[in-house]
């Protein structure tokens, strides 16, 4: 199983779409709310070099935005 961490805010539509996408496929992930968690926010900016959400970290591979094709490819779904 891949280790997945999502950096998101509660108000961003693509974050919701991304999480729904993974839930529908029974894929477990850790969700960090960068609106509240300043440490997670710094971690996200450091990892992705930018401030847009969502960011998804799949075993160290960083994807910015809900890039469905890229995510599907890495997770082989």
């Amino acid at each position: 199983m891949a280790k997945i961490k999502i950096y998101s805010t509660p108000t961003c539509p693509y974050c919701v779409t991304l999480k729904e996408f993974l839930k529908e496929r029974d894929i477990a992930f850790e969700d960090a709310n960068v609106a509240q968690d300043a440490q997670a926010r710094e971690e996200m900016i450091h990892k992705s070099g930018q401030m847009g959400v969502p960011v998804i970290d799949i075993d160290g591979e960083i994807i910015i935005g809900f890039d469905r094709e890229k995510i599907s490819k890495i997770l082989k779904i």
Partner: peptide, 18 residues
Amino acid sequence: FIGKGVSYCTACDGPLFG
């Protein structure tokens, strides 16, 4: 600078500008 300070979605990105 899109995603690096420039945003078109306040609802999405606003919370990052604490």
